[in-house]
């Protein structure tokens, strides 16, 4: 079947099989490998993308379901050559180590600070509790999201 989807702002048409998972579509068909795969059970969240601005686990959505919708990935965070506040904050606060969960964490963080630009430690932890990280112990991820929120607030 054919689908039309806007990926990181660019309209695209692709021929797909109904069973193709969105994550495979994003990685293989659209060629955006910043979105990763870490489990089979909708547990780890490293496949997170924004579907119409809302973070979802792309391993648990069929590509067919994004027909007529918008998908944003880590590759779309930067705009006009400028890093997104969340990207700068993850580096500044050492919010990543191996970097495998990082695109997902940043997308969740970016969507979250649009709703809450002054979050407490607990609020951030709750917001990212659908995403696993094995390296950092989360503390610097939380700090990075709070720092990005602060920058958002200042805008």
């Amino acid at each position: 079947m054919e689908i039309s989807v806007k990926i990181n702002g660019t309209p695209q048409k692709h021929e797909i099989e109904p069973r193709q998972l969105l994550v495979d579509f994003v990685r293989s068909t659209a060629g955006l490998t910043g979105t990763h795969i870490g489990c089979d059970t909708t547990s780890c969240g490293v496949c997170t993308v924004l579907l119409d601005g809302v973070p979802v686990k792309s391993c648990t959505v069929f590509a067919a379901q994004v027909d007529g919708h918008e998908v944003a990935t880590v590759e779309g965070l930067k705009s006009n050559g400028e890093l997104h506040a969340i990207q700068k904050a993850f580096t500044a606060h050492h919010g990543l180590q191996c970097g495998f969960c990082t695109p997902a964490m940043m997308l969740v963080g970016a969507a979250f600070i649009e709703e809450n630009d002054n979050p407490s430690d607990d609020e951030v932890r709750w917001a990212i509790s659908g995403n696993l990280c094995r390296c950092t112990g989360y503390v610097n991820i939380v700090k990075a999201i709070q720092a990005a929120a602060e920058e958002r607030r200042a805008q």
């Binding site: 955006l32 490998t33 979105t35 880590v74 930067k78 990207q87 580096t91 990543l96 970097g99 990082t102």
Partner: peptide, 9 residues
């Protein structure tokens, strides 16, 4: 970090 935060790992 530069490559990892842009999905270029």
């Amino acid at each position: 970090d530069a490559r990892l935060i842009e999905g270029q790992g």
